[in-house]
């Protein structure tokens, strides 16, 4: 069968596509059909089953903020996923509470997805409510004023544009909040 592809271009083409499509279909088309949590928004009202909460779509302002996050390429340096590793749940927890692990049902409305691949800066999956607006304002104006040694770029043109700044902060403050993981509800505003 493979030998035939030596002299016959159509055989070579057909066979290389067949082999490719076996894996291609099993790993891209099948998973969303099998795993319904990929498309069903997170909702849990029963504390016995773990963290409670409900995933709701972003409002207009948060969507605008998200578009800025995409435009400026924040996602090249910040991931948005708490992995199944203590290194993540502990490090990205807050005030002694571990961050809940990210699950596919928390990201159903994400388009484009912002999981990211590289952590030049910290993960932002649960950053919502960790810092208040004033902190973000100072930090975006010049990150090194607040965090010595940071290599994040400064974004004065966002801070100086109240509409953009408020939208971006509205988006950030919502990150990871579909799981209501702060026991005392002590989110910063």
């Amino acid at each position: 069968m493979f030998k035939k592809a030596d002299n016959n271009a159509l055989w070579a083409i057909g066979l290389s596509l067949v082999l490719f499509f076996i894996g291609g279909i099993i790993t891209t088309v099948v998973p969303p059909l099998v795993d319904t949590s990929w498309s069903k928004p997170f909702e849990n009202r029963d504390p016995a089953k773990g963290v409670t909460g409900k995933l709701v779509p972003l409002n207009e302002q948060q969507k605008k903020g998200r578009a800025i996050y995409v435009r400026e390429g924040c996602w090249y340096c910040h991931t948005q996923q708490i992995r199944t590793l203590l290194a993540d749940t502990k490090r990205y927890g807050w005030r002694g509470v571990d961050a809940p692990i990210s699950t596919p049902d928390e990201f159903v409305y994400d388009d484009p997805h912002m999981f990211g691949t590289k952590r030049t800066g910290p993960d932002l999956a649960r950053v919502g409510g960790k810092y208040d607006t004033q902190w973000h304002r100072t930090h975006f104006r010049n990150p090194r004023d607040l965090v010595k040694g940071s290599i994040m770029p400064a974004y004065p043109w966002i801070v100086n544009n109240p509409e953009e700044f408020n939208a971006l902060v509205a988006y950030l403050q919502n990150l990871g909040r579909s799981k209501d993981w702060r026991p005392a509800n002590d989110y910063e505003k």
Binding site: F2, L15, L19, I26, V34, Q81, S102, F115, T117
Partner: peptide
């Protein structure tokens, strides 16, 4: 032929430990 068959399956290794099945 092994490249044709094997490569396409591996995409999800970019999300190991992440929010994927």
């Amino acid at each position: 032929w092994s490249l044709a068959f094997v490569y396409v399956w591996t995409g999800a290794h970019h999300m190991l430990h992440g929010p994927i099945s």
